[in-house]
């Protein structure tokens, strides 16, 4: 781990429609030392990204109501904010790499909390380089 690595310098945007699962994911992100922003749909997520340039990681579920699902949101974020790292989670087993932007990570729900924390940390380290 790099000397200068401080998770609190990074903000993670958590997008999840279910409030209970969202709360748990936000707690996890904060426990890992990151700043967490939360959104329950893609529109809220885009507004937060526009307002908070410090968001460097998008952690999104696939299923959500509204005009965009998580995969569309991931592609939109890759287009508008290319540096933002993307992590996709879903209960759908059929999500494939082809559905996601390049270099994004996928976690099947439910995921082990520790694995998610490690993935967030690795992503943050890569951003530092």
């Amino acid at each position: 781990m790099g000397q200068s690595f401080q998770p609190s310098r990074f903000a993670v945007l958590v997008v999840e429609h279910d409030p209970l699962i969202l709360t748990e994911a936000v707690d996890l992100v904060e426990e890992a030392g990151f700043i967490a922003y939360e959104a329950r749909n893609a529109d809220q997520a885009i507004r937060l990204l526009e307002r908070h340039p410090e968001i460097t990681v998008l952690l999104t579920d696939v299923d959500m109501p509204g005009s965009m699902d998580g995969l569309k949101l991931a592609r939109a974020v890759r287009d508008r904010w290319p540096p933002v790292r993307i992590i996709v989670t879903s209960g759908h087993t059929k999500v494939t790499e082809a559905d996601m932007p390049e270099e994004s990570l996928f976690f099947a729900k439910p995921y082990p909390p520790q694995t998610m924390v490690q993935a967030l940390t690795r992503v943050a380290e890569q951003l530092l380089r």
């Binding site: 279910d18 209970l20 709360t23 707690d27 209960g91 059929k94 729900k109 439910p110």
Partner: peptide
Amino acid sequence: TRELAHRMKNTLSIVQAIVSQSLR
């Protein structure tokens, strides 16, 4: 069947959240 599997995964995620939150 796919729908059911998805629902089950979602329920498991909710269970995981409840367990994790309760433990905290």
